[in-house]
Write a protein that binds this DNA or RNA. Structure first.
Lengths: 196, 196, 196, 196
DNA sequence: CTTTAATCGAGACGGTACGTCTGGTCTTGTT
DNA sequence: AACAAGACCAGACGTACCGTCTCGATTAAAG
């Protein structure tokens, strides 16, 4: 098989991702450059160019763990409540450093389609998947009308959140609640199937 | 009073804005630099630095007219229909060059808060104002429930649109219709107050 | 004896020399790199490094045949005429591609003594040997004074030729004739020993 | 007049030439790079690129003084002796650092015609001019035959010297004397016009 | 028939330098 | 003052080679 050649140095690989991660957290996308990553990682620039096609790709890969970090929560019996809880957690994350990184990623992606592609695959899609499951469950269990437009609800939820983020708004808890209310307006089936 | 000194050259001012506008349309934000604008306008770089604090500010100012361009339409008697029509027009604009410029502006703004500020004031706020008026009218005239959350509807509408834009999606007409339907879901008062 | 191990691949060896030769003729020394040679020859870089200590060494070996090529000529009865004919032929060669290669070799040698050494041994010395024989014959046969400084004549002849070459001059036939005249000035024995 | 713009920094200019000069003397052409010159001079790389078109041009300019260094000598009454003295001095210079620099210059010039051009104009031509004057005087004053080929004598003298230099030979005093003898062989008019 | 030794390909690695570009700043003379 | 002109430093870009270094696979002669 084609396993010839000197094997990739796992050490360098890790050092690069770590350095990238650190730089991203310290200065955001603005101060994130290949040169700095290389210097910080103690690695030659060409090694980075060999493995990552763009700044966005490297940033995405290095930040992925941090981005998908602990959005877990104790699910309640109502998927609608779970949806609300989840959006609140996402909002909290977006208010912090992960938010700045995501914003930077979206910005970078406007100049480089490859970055958007990676970002979508690694971050957006998984996030939507989780949310989609929640809403499907809500419909299946009779909390939401059967004709509820799940995909649009997701587009709207994340769209609104990211829009606030990109415009530098604060994502207050109250705003999140109004968002959730709006989304479920006229979609909830009363009385709730959950007895008392 | 202190009005001594050479007066600002209106000629240069216009040449700069025109050159900036052209560059923005030719190559988007990526190829938009002070150097190029200065060269194209036949103006020294320092003159630009004197009057605009950042790339974003100059881009915004030069592109403003083009962005707020022809979204006018023949209003119908139903403000809800007008809202739908307006979103469709916005979507059409976002699919074209203005969309790429707006995306670039949002991207630039992630590195420079000043740009976001100007962008918000010059573009976002006016756009929201028009939309807000439409929805207020719809409530006032009895098309929408009195407790309809107008601000959130606006956040959602633009958030969803821009989210699609930034992720490189296509903004199909069908998607716009579903968006409008979702927003008005459960908010419409039937029967319509418009007779026949 | 220690002749174990896989034998050297004659195929690769030839492919390398051929590729080196081609590259040298296509782009001169400037575009002649180990990387390109390896790629062209379909050979790994390390194989080249194993067998040739430097670019100059490889270049020299690959170009040798081309350099010492067709300087043969029909000798006349006068060794002095033969010397003149020979210098003319050398000049013609130096005006063409071999000249550019030789110039490149001398240039390379200024950074790497090994290259000069090989170049001297493979090219300079043989060329001098032929010329030396001619002049010795001329002295022996009574065309030139017995105290003619043969070695210096050779130093001068090649020195002058290469100097022109390195300074980018054109090596006109007229100049060659003046060079030969100068070298033999006061050294010819008259009348010529060749009876008519 | 077109004297607008920030004037060239004499400080930087001098620092660059000094740094270039130092590097050339420390490591020869091999270790002479724009990067190093910039770093040593405390100057940005672009400033060097703005003013010098190539490494060779910068090297030449920085080394010129050192190259044309003290070849002055007390002239005797015989221009032929002066010629001999001059060649000896040139040889001494070529044996030292200036020789390595000149060799590097010629080498560099093989890849970049511009360098050869500058080198010829700044160094070769002036050196020939001095030598030419000496030989003209020798003819005029009756030391050399009127039909002595002065230009070829110069071509030969420098050609032979540089050839030795480029081949890494040692330029012994004895060799110089034989060179001069060869050049004047059969060209001297006896008895010398200089009365004793 | 299995070591052992050398070669070969593939290809990664740390480096160095290239030439270009942009961002901001500054220093002039001119208007 | 504002302006054109243009120099300056800083620093990142992406590319090209360098010479070295693993690796696994191949190929013979030697044990």
């Amino acid at each position: 098989m084609g396993t010839a050649g000197r094997p990739r140095s796992e050490e360098s690989h890790k050092a690069i991702l770590q350095a990238a991660y650190d730089l991203l957290h310290e200065g955001g996308f603005a101060r994130f450059t290949f040169e700095r990553v290389a210097a910080r990682a103690g690695v030659s620039r060409s090694t980075i160019y060999r493995w990552w096609p763009s700044k966005g790709a490297l940033a995405m890969e290095s930040a992925f763990d941090a981005l998908s970090v602990e959005l877990a929560f104790e699910p309640s019996r109502s998927p609608v409540d779970n949806f609300r809880t989840r959006l609140r957690l996402v909002a909290v994350a977006l208010k912090g450093r992960p938010g700045r990184i995501i914003a930077g990623m979206l910005a970078e992606g406007q100049q480089d389609p490859g970055t958007i592609e990676i970002f979508t695959k690694l971050y957006i899609e998984p996030a939507r998947r989780i949310t989609r499951a929640l809403l499907h469950q809500a419909v299946d269990e009779g909390f939401l009308r059967p004709d509820f437009d799940i995909e649009m609800a997701i587009d709207i939820a994340f769209g609104a959140l990211y829009h606030q983020l990109l415009l530098g708004r604060t994502l207050e808890r109250d705003w999140i609640d109004r968002l959730v209310d709006f989304i479920f307006r006229g979609a909830l089936i009363e009385p709730s199937p959950i007895p008392n």
